[in-house]
Design a protein around this nucleic acid. Structure first.
Lengths: 133, 133
DNA sequence: CCTTGCCCTGACGTCGGCGTCAAGGTCTAT
DNA sequence: ATAGACCTTGACGCCGACGTCAGGGCAAGG
C-alpha cells in the first residue's frame, strides 16, 4: 500500500503521514522508485495515534503506544510506558477539569452579578402603548 | 506614568503592553518625546484584561470589556456586549468540561483494562525469598 | 508523445501571546 | 562628558500539527 491509500483508509492527509514519519512514529520503508510502502499493521499505528489524539494526547505522548505496537504487542497500551502515560493523562485531565469548573463558577457568578446590575429591557420587542392608527 | 511603571504595577511586561496597544486594547497617548503615557484608568484596563485571561479568555474576547471600561462604565461587564461574551464563554466552558469528562472516563476505562491485562509486578520492591548469605 | 494521477522534497504560512534581540533615542545623576 | 536606566521601533523565534504551494519524478493508458 502506498501513502495515498493509507491516508484514505486512515482518514488523514498524506501530509500528516509524512509528518508522523518525520517524527519517527511511522516506519520509513520505501519501494525501489522511492515511494513509501505500508502494510496493514501501519494502518493500525495510525489508528492508534488518531484515537489518542482525539483524547487530547500530543503526538509525543502517543509515541510509547506506537512503539509498543511496533514491537509486536497486541495493543498499544500493553506496555508499562503506555500505562504510565495513561496515568499522567488522567491526573492532567482531573486537574484541568477542576480548574475549568472553578473558572466556570467564577464566570457564572460574574455574569449573574453583571445581569443584576443591568436589569434593562430583556425584551426589546415589547409593544408600543400609544393609540393605534 | 510611563510604560515601565504600568507594567510593574500590572504585573506584566512592557512587551505585553505594547502588544495590547497594537491590538487597540490600550490607548496610544504619547508625551512630547514619544514616550507612552498612561493613567490609573489604564491600569484598570490591564487588570481587566488579565482577570479575563486567567479565565481563559482570548484577547479579542476581552475587547468588549475593555471598550466598556474606556467608555466610562464603572466595570467592564456593565455593557450588553460583555454580558454576551460571558454567556458564550459559559456555554463554551460547559461544553468543554463535558467533553473532558467524557475523555477522562474513556481514558480511565482504557487504563483499567490495560492494567487488568498486565497484572505484573505491581511492587518490584518485594523481598527475595532465597536463603540469606 | 501526451495527459492523468499518483508520488517526491523543501519550504513557507497558520494561530496566540508574547520573549528576545538589535540598534538606537532620552533623561538624570555624577 | 558619560554612565545608567529608561524609552522607541522593527523584526525574528517559539510551540503543535499540520495546510499549501512550488517544482519536479514515475507509471500507465490512449
Amino acid at each position: 500500500m502506498r501513502i495515498g491509500e493509507l491516508a484514505e483508509r486512515a482518514g488523514v492527509s498524506t501530509r500528516t503521514l509524512r509528518y508522523y514519519e518525520s517524527l519517527g512514529l511511522l516506519p520509513e520503508q520505501r519501494a525501489a522508485n522511492g515511494y513509501r510502502v505500508y502494510g496493514d499493521d501501519d494502518l493500525r499505528l495510525v489508528e492508534q495515534i488518531r484515537v489518542l489524539q482525539d483524547f487530547g494526547f500530543g503526538l509525543e505522548e502517543t509515541r510509547p503506544f506506537v512503539e509498543c505496537l511496533r514491537s509486536g504487542h497486541p495493543t498499544g497500551d500493553s506496555c508499562p510506558a503506555s500505562i504510565s502515560v495513561y496515568r499522567d493523562k488522567l491526573a492532567e485531565l482531573d486537574a484541568l477539569i477542576d480548574r475549568l469548573r472553578s473558572v466556570r463558577d467564577q464566570v457564572g457568578a460574574q455574569l449573574a452579578e453583571a445581569e443584576a446590575r443591568l436589569p434593562e429591557a430583556p425584551e426589546p420587542l415589547c409593544q408600543m402603548e400609544g393609540p393605534r392608527e
